[in-house]
C-alpha cells in the first residue's frame, strides 16, 4: 500500500509541472496585462512597475525565475493586492472556504446518501418521486439563483439570519452559505446513490444475504450501502476539492472571505502570481483527493485491493 501511495505521489510531480507550465504560458498569452486599467499609467511609470516585477524580461526567463522561486515555496507577491503575498492571501482565505465547503460536503453526503437510499428502497413509489423531483430541482436551480432567494427570505423578510457577512465564522453566518453550497451537491449525491443502490439491491449477494434471513435493515446498512457507495466516493473526490476551495458565486453573494473568488478575479485582474498560486493549490488538492479516493476504493471493493 505504502509503495503504491509513494508511486502515485511521485507521478504527481511531473503532472503538476505540466499544469504549471500550461497555466503560466496561457496566462501570458491572454491579451491585456496586469497594469492595464481605466487610469492608464504614463509609460515611464509603467516601465518602473514592470521592472519591479521582472515583467520586462522575456517570458521564458520569467518562467524560469518563477520555477526557481517555487522550489523555495515562494509564490511571489500579488500584483493586485500589493500588501499581501500570494501565500498570505491563499492561507487567509482557506479557513473560511474549508469551513463552509467542508460543512456543505458533510451535510450533502449524509442527506444525499440518506435520501438516495430512501428513494431506492421505495423505487417508483411516491417517496421516490418526491425525493427525485426535489433533487432534479436542486440540480436545475443554479446557486446564483438559490443563494439570493435564501438570503432574501431568511435574511430580509424573516430576519432570522444575517443576509451576508462572515462575522468571524459565527454559526449564524454559516447557515445560509452552507445550505446554498450543499443543495446541488445533495441532489447529485442522492441521484447517484439511488441509481447504484437500486442496482446493488438487485444483485446476487444481496439476494443471498436476504435468503440467509438477515433483517432488511442490516442488509441495507451492512451490505448494500457499502457497494452502492462506490460511485458516490469517486464523485466525492473531485467534489470535495471543488467545494472546499470555495465558490466565487457563494462567496460574493454572502461576502465570505474565502479563496473561491480568486479563481475568477485573479484571472480577470491578470494577477499572474495569484492565478498560478490558486491553480497549483487546486491541482494539488485534486491530485491528493483522487489518491484518497483510490485508497478508499480499495477498502470498499475487495476486487480492487492493491497488493503491497
Amino acid at each position: 500500500m505504502f509503495s503504491y501511495i509513494l508511486k502515485r505521489l511521485l507521478t504527481a510531480v511531473p503532472t503538476l509541472l505540466i499544469i504549471i507550465t500550461i497555466a503560466f504560458f496561457m496566462m501570458r498569452i491572454a491579451p491585456g496585462g496586469p497594469f492595464d486599467q481605466e487610469r492608464q499609467l504614463p509609460p515611464e511609470i509603467e516601465a518602473n512597475i514592470l521592472k519591479a516585477y521582472d515583467l520586462d524580461k522575456p517570458v521564458y526567463e520569467q518562467y524560469f525565475i518563477y520555477l526557481g522561486k517555487l522550489l523555495q515555496f515562494d509564490f511571489g507577491p500579488s500584483y493586485k493586492f500589493r500588501d499581501f503575498s500570494v501565500t498570505e492571501l491563499i492561507l487567509s482565505g482557506l479557513p473560511a472556504s474549508f469551513q463552509i465547503g467542508g460543512l456543505a460536503i458533510l451535510l450533502a453526503t449524509f442527506i444525499g446518501i440518506g435520501l438516495g437510499t430512501l428513494a431506492a428502497l421505495y423505487q417508483n413509489q411516491k417517496t421516490d418521486y418526491a425525493i427525485m423531483g426535489v433533487a432534479m430541482t436542486g440540480i436545475a436551480v443554479p446557486n446564483f439563483v438559490a443563494a439570493p432567494i435564501l438570503s432574501l427570505v431568511f435574511g430580509v423578510y424573516l430576519a432570522w439570519l444575517p443576509v451576508a457577512g462572515w462575522g468571524d465564522g459565527a454559526a449564524r453566518n454559516l447557515v445560509l452559505p452552507v445550505i446554498s453550497l450543499a443543495l446541488p451537491q445533495i441532489a447529485y449525491i442522492a441521484r447517484l446513490t439511488r441509481g447504484s443502490m437500486i442496482e446493488v439491491l438487485h444483485s446476487n449477494y444481496i439476494r443471498t444475504a436476504r435468503a440467509k434471513g438477515i433483517r432488511e435493515r442490516l442488509v441495507v446498512i451492512r451490505h448494500a450501502i457499502k457497494g452502492a457507495l462506490l460511485p458516490v466516493v469517486s464523485y466525492l473526490g473531485p467534489a470535495v476539492a471543488a467545494v472546499t476551495t470555495g465558490s466565487v458565486v457563494i462567496e460574493s453573494i454572502y461576502d465570505i472571505p474565502g479563496v473561491g473568488r480568486y479563481f475568477v478575479n485573479a484571472a480577470l485582474n491578470r494577477d499572474y502570481p495569484l492565478v498560478m498560486g490558486v491553480v497549483i493549490f487546486y491541482a494539488t488538492l485534486i491530485l491528493i483527493m483522487n489518491l484518497i479516493v483510490d485508497v478508499v476504493y480499495s477498502f470498499l471493493d475487495p476486487k480492487l485491493r492493491v497488493s503491497g
Binding site: 439570493p148 435574511g155 430580509v156 444575517p162 451576508a164 457577512g165 453573494i253 454572502y254 461576502d255
Partner: peptide, 16 residues
C-alpha cells in the same frame, strides 16, 4: 468589501 450591488442592498435593507 462586497462587490455584488444587489447583495449589499439586501444587507442595507436588513439594517446590517
Amino acid at each position: 468589501p462586497q462587490e455584488d450591488r444587489s447583495a449589499v442592498l439586501k444587507r442595507v435593507r436588513a439594517g446590517e
